[in-house]
Amino acid sequence: METIPLTAPATPGRESLKRRLERAGFDTTTLLLAPALLFVLALFIYPALYGVWLSLHPMNGGGWLANYTAFFSDPYVYGTIFTTLELAVPVTLVNLALSVPIALRVRRMRHQRLLTTLLVIPVTLGTVLTAQGMLNYFGPLGWFNRVLMSLHLIHMPVRLVHNFTGVFLSQIVSGFPFCFMLVLSYVTGIDPSLENAAAMLGARAAQRFRHIILPLLAAGLAITFCLAFVQAFSVFPSAVLVGAPSGPTRVIAIAAFHAAYEEYDYSMGSAIAVIMGVIQIIVVALVMWLSSLFYRGPAGGGKG
């Protein structure tokens, strides 16, 4: 806190501006924010705006919407949107569907730390290492197929890499722990006494989940869905390494990368990045709107 000056300000105009700023919360301490804010404005906000501008100035001329018309007139390119959605939506739903029951169970566990530590590993290792491991493990001669064959569940090795399944599995390996951690943090925020009360009043497990847990969890699940979806929607390394990047798993990130770094058309690359961002925003807005319809209780995890 600054000491309050006892004498009248010498230059009334300047002082009053300073006072006014201080009343709005700006003083030397607030100024400490400036370097970080300028940095993010310069290297995040400016590039984002520049990307939009660049996408409207096509490299080969032809009007400011040329990149977008080119994108939406070539099925091989605009098809990447649907390829990516077909991958990202089911993966996110599967990850969420797995996370909720497991988180509800783990919440009552004593040694949560061990499990969460084990599950942080794939997040840390990242998709590139996961992809390389999957090529060994899920490959035709890998352990997974060998186990299934020696159990006589299959006679021929199942193809699990270099196709859609490969990318799907890799998104579960690295996406599920992420979803689980978030859901667990929301689940632990729900007061267990609410569920106990419902149980005492005779609600069965399914009813307790439907009427107590789910409404309280809805907002958290919507946020988790959004965060997991945008990650899955911008998948790149695993779609190339364990997928079939020229066909079934040609996701939109590959199209953007191809335009910018293989055809050296940064304008088109930026246009695809903009389209990617817009689709992500649309899906996020849709999910948040749906969850606002669904959830009508007080905010927070029932702690009030």
């Binding site: 993010v40 995040f44 590039p47 990307g51 660049l54 965060l227 911008s234 940064y266 990617m276």
Partner: peptide, 17 residues
Amino acid sequence: LPLIIPPFTYGIPLASV
């Protein structure tokens, strides 16, 4: 925003800058 937007989405414009 930089935390929730995936890097691949803003990476290409950032690289061009």
